[in-house]
Design a protein around this nucleic acid. Structure first.
Lengths: 340, 340
DNA sequence: AAACATTGAGTTACCCGTAACGTTCCGTTA
DNA sequence: TAACGGAACGTTACGGGTAACTCAATGTTT
């Protein structure tokens, strides 16, 4: 045991005094061998510390690997970490592994990663977002493996998709805020190289606000990460540029908390002087003294459903093309009360 | 193009009217072919949508794959998400991919995952924690690939390690709290199937508190996840069981925030009535109105260093066995002032 | 006792690239 | 012009398993 070189099946077979094929049968428990033979082979597997080489197995047949490529924009954003957790846990119960790809919200990174990960013959891919480069789409089609697009709901997915309708999220929040009487509203978010779910939310939001008689007077898209501090200074910029903002909608809760902090620091009372609304409902909300006006999505569940849909596609079970896991608007206490 | 079946190099070669070997040479740019030939091969690669099969390459030579197995206890804990982000980003710059394994803080899960991931011939493994099952250690030794143990500093690692000394973290906090005059102190954390970094912190903490003339009168180890709400109800249990606690040390900041919330809810003033200290320094601290007494660690950097050490081991560059990335105690405002 | 089924185990070919070596077909040079 | 050298490309073998097939040694039936 404890050799430095890898132990192969034929070495095990030789040591056990049988052929490679017999050893293979024992390992796969497919029958066709005597108990004596089984014992001899197992003894040698143990003694030599043999570990099967799955590359060879995949290579031999047309059977695919147990890799699932999973692309995630970034893990600094807590919601994506939760999605990944849901995916990997569920995949694990089926004996599959995630091969991670952090795309940093760029299609170029995604395309590069797709090219690499496809060369490892994954069983399938789970991709965040419904926007992909033209070349990426071609490669995905050629690969002939299941693709689950998550996050954004996609009515015409490459293969199947699961997520929520971000336009509706934004729309509902826009309608809610205008129903409370807000008319002059600002937005603080970040921009990326392409349209994404945040863009969809903003579009839905603007539509509802305008439909409700309000106006999104200023949209600030920072070239930064969508986290706490950019929410802080983004709020400062927004308020400096536009005087009479009644309420601010943020790309997500992390930025909204940053905005809340800015207001606290400047003596602006929330929600008396200004309203604040975010998106995503972070876990920390359960221990904040003010409930953030936001939109709740079960990110863990989203990930789990994505993994389940992947497994359904791999086993050939019938499954819907498109699953909406829904969201729930959280009124919170960072905007004025109804009727205010 | 757009075949359903995978396109192999020999198909490309045949289409281009050359041998497989020539096509291989063109792909690897190793020379020994004319410009005419190169153009013909490249044209067919494009036309057929050929993607190289890296499995076959690994299989052919003794060259290893570009997979790095990365085991992480859980992603619900923000700090581990940051570590993973640091690892994957850095690995990506070297053309390597992370194969994720969530161990849920159990050695049994870790062992199972190690067995599986080793069968895919990874180039190396990055493991969280320095405790592994006996069988896992045997497999790792037999595998003969680099192993980077992270998180806990390990003076005698399997191979190399990077992290911090958790005992010292706990010790410094214990010394700090006793220096502020705290004597009757409680602890709230979670328990797992084995010793881990949190255990080390607790041990260091107790040692310092006792050395400083104080006493850790109650250690509460919940069978739950180390997040916000368990911090909340754990605090309730702790205070119900023991009356005169002056200060509580928590396993991490998430639990500490939960505790802070409990105190707020019950009208206990922090730090006047009770002191609270955590560990890990979450990003949200930057927008909280009270600075949590905690311990700062650069988790992203930890992940990056781990990936760098892995690459150093793979390329054979000399590198230290053991890297301490250090920590910084954050006095915060959730404990009384010095001299109080 | 001859014909046949069953069980256990070995043989061969193959999957897709690459290393190592072999073969043409030129152009130079003595 | 024979001899040589190198560029360009082909052939073969290999790696670790598995499918499909073959074969030998039993046992079973009539």
């Amino acid at each position: 045991m404890s050799k430095n070189k890898k132990v192969s099946l034929s070495q095990v077979a030789k040591a056990a005094g049988v052929s490679k094929m017999t050893a293979s049968r024992v390992l796969r428990k497919e029958g066709g061998y005597s108990e004596t033979t089984r014992a001899k082979v197992m003894a040698q597997i143990d003694a030599l510390g043999y570990l099967p080489n799955r590359l060879a197995t995949v290579f031999a047949g047309d059977q695919s690997s147990t890799f699932i490529g999973v692309s995630i924009p970034d893990l600094g954003n807590e919601v994506f970490a939760q999605v990944l957790e849901g995916i990997d846990r569920k995949l694990g119960t089926f004996g599959y592994q995630s091969v991670l790809g952090l795309t940093q919200h760029t299609l170029a990174e995604e395309e590069k990663w797709i090219r690499t990960v496809l060369s490892w013959q994954p069983a399938g891919l789970i991709l965040t977002g419904r926007y992909h480069s033209q070349r990426a789409v071609e490669m995905l089609r050629n690969a002939g493996i299941p693709v689950v697009e998550i996050w954004d709901l996609n009515s015409s997915p490459l293969d199947v998709s699961v997520g929520i309708n971000h336009f509706d999220c934004g729309f509902d929040m826009g309608r809610y805020l205008t129903s409370l009487g807000y008319r002059t509203i600002g937005y603080v978010g970040t921009s990326h190289d392409t349209a994404n779910a945040a863009t969809d939310r903003l579009n839905g939001f603007c539509k509802a606000v305008e439909g409700g008689g309000g106006e999104v007077v200023k949209q600030l898209c920072l070239h930064d990460t969508a986290t706490y501090y950019p929410g802080f200074y983004g709020t400062e910029h927004l308020l400096a540029a536009t005087g009479n903002i009644e309420c601010i909608y943020y790309q997500n809760d992390a930025m909204a908390y940053g905005g809340l902090k800015y207001c606290d620091a400047k003596g602006l009372a929330v929600p008396t002087d200004i309203g604040i609304a975010g998106w995503g409902d972070l876990p920390i909300a359960s221990v904040m003294n003010r409930r953030m006006t936001s939109c709740h999505v079960s990110h863990l569940k989203l990930g789990q459903r994505a993994a389940e849909m992947m497994m359904a596609r791999l086993t050939g079970e019938p499954a819907p093309d498109c699953v909406d896991i829904g969201f729930r608007l959280i009124p919170g206490s960072t905007v004025r009360n109804a009727g205010g």
